[in-house]
């Protein structure tokens, strides 16, 4: 699966990419929401977007909302360092909201596998 990974922190983003590539997927990395939107100009380019929540300028949630308002229906996974529960409630259209810690190494590939 070709996946767009969005994270303002290159180290954390690299880690997400490593986890996904390890599970056999290919990834492109975007450092912020605007870059992500540029990469998404071709709606068929990615089968999934995995984005960090807390980013300057455009948060992960705002990126998701912006995508949907542009008619981009790519499945969207949100990663957050805080309690994911309230976020899930705020964005019902999101595929999943995962806690961004060591558990992500298992939870993310498992989730993607089910798609």
């Amino acid at each position: 699966m070709h996946i767009l990974v969005v994270d303002d922190d290159p180290l954390a983003g690299e880690m997400t990419v490593a986890v996904l590539e390890e599970a056999g997927h290919t990834c492109q990395f975007a450092e912020h929401g605007m870059q992500a939107l540029e990469a998404l100009v071709d709606p068929a380019a990615f089968e999934l977007v995995v984005s960090d929540m807390n980013m300057p300028l455009l948060s992960g949630l705002e990126l998701f909302q912006e995508m949907r308002s542009q008619g981009l229906e790519t499945p969207f996974v949100l990663l957050t360092g805080d309690d994911p529960e309230p976020l899930r409630a705020r964005a019902p259209g999101i595929l999943a909201c995962l806690l961004k810690d060591a558990s992500m190494e298992d939870s993310l590939p498992r989730l993607v596998e089910q798609l």
Binding site: D8, L11, A12, M15, T16, D52, N54, G81, D101, A102
Partner: peptide, 9 residues
């Protein structure tokens, strides 16, 4: 960022 990448790694 420290929190985020610290937790991921």
């Amino acid at each position: 960022t420290l929190k985020g990448s610290g937790a991921s790694l």
